[in-house]
Structure formats: structure tokens, C-alpha cells
């Protein structure tokens, strides 16, 4: 354990003195923040309404069936809420009248839609300048948030693989692997120590990302197990690239090749019809996307997660068998 921790602590110490490693460690969180900033714009397709406490609960329930509804303490809080970045309309009830308060830069149809919803509560119909119809297309959250989040979480594991690549390249560049090979640390402990950051950084990065993106209600058990399984494949690829490269630029360039199967699997899963998904079954990243997507939607079951993890581990095992000699040779 002492030797294992020594390897991890060395890598952390060395990593904190390398800007590229620092960037890779926080890249997922930075991307999540950028995505988070973009989400309100995309959420414009959904209607958000705020009421003041004490408003007729039947009215709130009626609006809630068409929009996302929030309740604040008083009018000042309502005005403050409306002024934030996202599009929110405020409703004040004054006698028999409804007063809609808006910031002024909202998407036009939202105000009209809200008027329509409020009038239907009173059993009145109004002539709208646009056609309004309500249907449920199944989106509970913004597609950017869901798909961007899934993609980001899978890429977080690739970043973990890149960290391993850079740490191994450092060992290769300075020929310190020879010194390690004549010290009493077993190769297994050394590999586990080197691989530990490849698990830790993706776990921290992906949990941070889901919190930033507002997926706090997911099943974290399923989520962490899935991230660990996906990280396995990135780590093995990271080792195989790291041990044969003597300088970081060529190593990162090689690691970028991994982006191709990752992106192909995820976009394939997003855009291909279900009947064509079988052509992606070879890719562990497809199964990873399948799990993460369902977990973020809170639709995943343990059975689905465990079966997908089993498939990922199986495919990773095959990749490991193919790369085993290359890794062992490179570590000598």
C-alpha cells in the first residue's frame, strides 16, 4: 500500500507542475461550465413560470401541467428571478387580473403561450397571433444538457487515459522506468499506482460535471460503476500509447485517435435508427453511452447497467489481450 501510494503521490506532485496535466484534470469541469452557460438558451423551448407564495394552488397546478413552475416569497424575489440569464416569466395575480412580468428579451411566443394557458384556466379562449398546440415529445431535460452531458462524461474517461499517457511519457523521456525496474516495487503495484489517477480524475470530473449540469438526482452507485468500467478501456489504451512514446506531443496525437471510435459510437447511438445500432455493438463506448444516457434520464436499471458494464469489461479484456505484450515490453 505504501508503494502504491508513493507512485500516486509522485504522479500528483509531478502533475501539479505540468500545465497540460492540470488542464486535463479540470477540462471536464470547464466544459461542463460552458455547457451550463449554454443550457438556458436551449431551454427556451420550455416555458418557465414563477409565482409568488400565496397564489391560488389550483392555478399553479394548472400552469404546472404546461410549464416548469417556481414559487418565490414575494414580488421582489420574483423580479430578481426574472432578471437572471434564463427565460422566466413571472405571474402576479391582482384581483381578477393576471399580470405577466417579463425581462423583455424572451422568445416572443412564450408570453402568448402563457396568456393562453392562464385564460384556459378561467375557461376563456383568446385569439392568439400564433398557433399553440401542446404535445409531449418525451424530453424532460434539454437535449444539449443530456447529450452534451453524456458525451462529456465519456470524454472525461478519455482525459484520464491522457493523464496516464503523459505520466508514462515522462517516465520514458527521463528513462526512470529503468530505475523503477531495479527497485523492489512489483510491476503490478506500479501499474495500479500509475492507473489510479486514470480512475480518480474521471470519477471526480464526471461527478463534478453532473452536479454542474444539474443532474444531481441521478443514481450515483450506477453512475460511478459505469464511469469506472468506461475508464478501464481508456486506461488500457493510455498505457499502450504511453509506453511506446518518448515525447508528449506524439503521445497526445496518438491518443487523439481514440476520439474517432468514441465520437463515432456516441453520434451513431444518437442519430442511427435503433435497427442499425447493432453495427456499434463492437464499441465499448457505445455501451458506455447507453448506460450514461439512461442514468442521466433516471431511466437506468441495475440490470441494464451491469449488463452494459459486463460487455464493456469483456471488450476491454479483448483489447487488453491484444495490447498486453506491447504494454509489458514498453514497461521494461
Amino acid at each position: 500500500m505504501r508503494k502504491f501510494l508513493a507512485v500516486i503521490s509522485r504522479d500528483i506532485k509531478s502533475g501539479t507542475r505540468d500545465w497540460l496535466i492540470i488542464y486535463l484534470s479540470v477540462a471536464a469541469l470547464l466544459i461542463a461550465l460552458i455547457l451550463r452557460a449554454l443550457i438556458p438558451g436551449v431551454s427556451n423551448s420550455a416555458m418557465n413560470v414563477v409565482f409568488v407564495e400565496g397564489t391560488d394552488s389550483n392555478l399553479i397546478a394548472h400552469v404546472e401541467s404546461h410549464a416548469t413552475v417556481g414559487v418565490v416569497s414575494d414580488e421582489a424575489a420574483l423580479r430578481e428571478r426574472i432578471l437572471r440569464m434564463d427565460d422566466v416569466l413571472g405571474v402576479l395575480v391582482e384581483g381578477e387580473q393576471y399580470k405577466i412580468i417579463k425581462q423583455g428579451n424572451e422568445v416572443m411566443p412564450m408570453e402568448e403561450t402563457l396568456k393562453f394557458v392562464l385564460n384556459t384556466y378561467k375557461g376563456q379562449s383568446i385569439d392568439l397571433p400564433i398557433q399553440v398546440a401542446f404535445s409531449d415529445i418525451g424530453w424532460e431535460i434539454s437535449p444539449l444538457k443530456l447529450e452534451g452531458g453524456s458525451l462529456l462524461i465519456i470524454f472525461t474517461t478519455v482525459f484520464g487515459g491522457m493523464l496516464i499517457v503523459l505520466n508514462l511519457v515522462e517516465e520514458k523521456m527521463s528513462n526512470t522506468l529503468s530505475a523503477i525496474n531495479v527497485s523492489p516495487i512489483s510491476r503490478t503495484v506500479f501499474i495500479l499506482g500509475k492507473g489510479a489517477l486514470g480512475f480518480t480524475i474521471p470519477i471526480i470530473g464526471s461527478i463534478g460535471s453532473v452536479l454542474i449540469l444539474g443532474f444531481a438526482g441521478i443514481n450515483y452507485g450506477m453512475f460511478i460503476i459505469s464511469v469506472i468500467c468506461i475508464a478501464l478501456i481508456s486506461i488500457i489504451i493510455g498505457f499502450s500509447i504511453g509506453v511506446v512514446n518518448n515525447e508528449p506531443i506524439s503521445a497526445i496525437a496518438s491518443m487523439k485517435m481514440v476520439f474517432l471510435p468514441v465520437l463515432a459510437s456516441i453520434f451513431g447511438a444518437m442519430f442511427l435508427a435503433d435497427k442499425w445500432h447493432f453495427i456499434l455493438y463492437w464499441s465499448p463506448f457505445y455501451w458506455a453511452y447507453d448506460s450514461i444516457h439512461a442514468i442521466l434520464l433516471n431511466e437506468a436499471t441495475w440490470q441494464q447497467v451491469l449488463v452494459n458494464c459486463g460487455i464493456i469489461i469483456g471488450l476491454t479484456g479483448l483489447v487488453f489481450l491484444a495490447l498486453r505484450k506491447r504494454i509489458a515490453h514498453g514497461l521494461r
Binding site: 508513493a6 509522485r10 509531478s14 515522462e170 526512470t176 529503468s178 530505475a179 527497485s183 516495487i185
Partner: peptide, 28 residues
């Protein structure tokens, strides 16, 4: 056993004392 290499092989991002302290932890 101790092995001193012809080509120096140390961790460039670590200080001299950090280099030695890392290897020190690997011995039993």
C-alpha cells in the same frame, strides 16, 4: 542491490530531495 546508471535518469519535475524520497518509499 543498488544500481547506478551510466545515463542519469531522474524525475525532472521533482526536486533532488523529492526524487530520493520517492525511491526511499519503495524499499522494505
Amino acid at each position: 542491490i543498488g544500481v547506478s546508471f551510466e545515463q542519469s535518469n531522474v524525475y525532472n519535475k521533482l526536486s533532488a530531495i523529492e526524487n530520493l524520497e520517492f525511491y526511499k518509499k519503495l524499499f522494505d
